[in-house]
């Protein structure tokens, strides 16, 4: 029958779609369940603080170092290009706007997904593999409240702080290169930056973006860990999925948020 390959192909597409939709539905219900168990988890604040330590404090080094280097590269490249048009004085504005509006939340989010998200997924996945989660349920301890919700909130709290720190470090890196090395006037550097960047909408939108990325990455990380196949291979696949899906989610969400936040800026 010549139609058989066609039917098989369609069947595969259908199965894939159904699997994707049911996973999305499961993730959404999982999100609601995490939120439902959050008050109980947040009442025991040391649990969440411990996760802020693992997700946030231990990410400090990578965030600070990347921030400084991204800022220094922006300073060098930006100055070269701006100077072509005699606008080298606008370096501060250029660096500040790129970092605050886009690079701060996005790059910090990508680093956060690979540094902290993967660790959360691996930890929860391994707990599931070694049946620690089932053991907790046997002891009438809800793993959603004891394990998942603190990790989720630890990520949500850490992410905006890390993104802000990344932006500041980037500005500092650009300051070192632009003002100390190249010799842009310090007053011009800060003055142009302050003239062009407003608290509202620029800085507030940056914070909103980083909070949204924090929720997205943390949710993906805990969900993938909870949903992982309880084998060594399954945990490794789930960790990979966290990094890939987390990064893609950040980039897609960033585009959507940017469209809504900055499309109207400057228009009447």
């Amino acid at each position: 029958m010549p139609t058989k390959p066609l039917a098989n192909g369609l069947r595969r597409i259908g199965a894939g779609t159904i699997r994707a939709v049911s996973r999305m539905g499961f993730a959404a219900r999982f999100f609601v369940a995490v939120l439902y168990h959050s008050p109980a988890a947040l009442r025991r604040i040391p649990l969440t603080l411990r996760e802020v330590y693992f997700a946030g404090v231990l990410s400090l080094v990578v965030i600070i170092v990347s921030g400084v280097f991204v800022g220094m590269v922006l300073g060098l490249q930006g100055y070269d290009t701006l100077n072509l048009y005699g606008a080298g004085d606008s370096l501060g504005l250029f660096v500040g706007l790129s970092l605050v509006r886009e690079l701060g939340p996005v790059v910090a989010g990508l680093l956060f997904a690979s540094r902290a998200g993967s660790a959360i997924t691996a930890e929860i996945g391994l707990m599931k593999t070694t049946e620690q989660l089932s053991a907790m349920e046997m002891m009438a301890v809800d793993p959603l409240a004891r394990i998942v919700a603190p990790r989720f909130w630890g990520g949500v709290i850490s992410m905006p702080l890390l993104a802000a720190l990344f932006s500041v470090m980037g500005v500092f890196g650009a300051y070192v290169v632009g003002v100390r090395l190249i010799g842009v006037d310090s007053g011009t550097f800060w003055g142009n930056m302050q003239a062009g960047i407003e608290f509202r909408p620029d800085v507030t939108n940056s914070i909103i973006k980083s909070v949204v990325f924090g929720v997205a990455v943390s949710l993906i990380a805990v969900f993938e860990g909870y949903d992982a196949k309880p084998t060594a291979e399954g945990v490794s696949a789930a960790t990979t999925r966290t990094v890939v899906e987390g990064s893609l989610a950040i980039l897609a969400l960033d585009f959507i948020l940017t469209v809504f936040m900055f499309r109207g800026v400057g228009d009447v």
Partner: peptide
């Protein structure tokens, strides 16, 4: 860092 962004960068 957020305060720095608000005051020094964003000139709130």
């Amino acid at each position: 860092a957020i305060v720095f962004l608000a005051l020094k960068v964003g000139n709130l």
